[in-house]
């Protein structure tokens, strides 16, 4: 399935921040970067399944709130222990004042 899913309003996320987005029994993290781009990853840390939306966004990194592991949310790449497994990422686009996510 490659449909675009309406995730949230563009003003629902502050710059350099993250929100949680649940859809179809799954949970995602939706990011707004400092340069006003939107990104989406799986919502749970690959280390111990903690919601990343409670974490801290610094530039293009998301830091897990439990153990401070870091990912580059643009690529999903694990950047700092204790995370070792990359996050899955999802394509996003903006349509008017809505952020859409392509959930494959």
């Amino acid at each position: 399935m490659t449909d675009w899913t309406d995730a949230c309003a563009t003003d629902a996320i502050d710059p350099e921040d993250v929100v949680r987005f649940d859809h179809g029994g799954r949970t995602f993290a939706l990011y707004r970067s400092p340069d006003d781009r939107w990104y989406c990853t799986d919502g749970l840390c690959t280390h111990e399944q903690v919601h990343l939306a409670d974490g801290l966004v610094m530039d293009h990194l998301i830091e897990c709130p439990k153990h401070n592991g870091q990912f580059d949310y643009r690529t999903g790449q694990a950047k700092r222990a204790p995370v070792c497994v990359n996050l899955r990422t999802y394509e996003t686009r903006v349509d008017g004042d809505r952020v859409l996510v392509r959930i494959g």
Partner: peptide, 10 residues
Amino acid sequence: WRWSHARHHT
């Protein structure tokens, strides 16, 4: 100890 301390927090 990075991993040890992660477990301590979990």
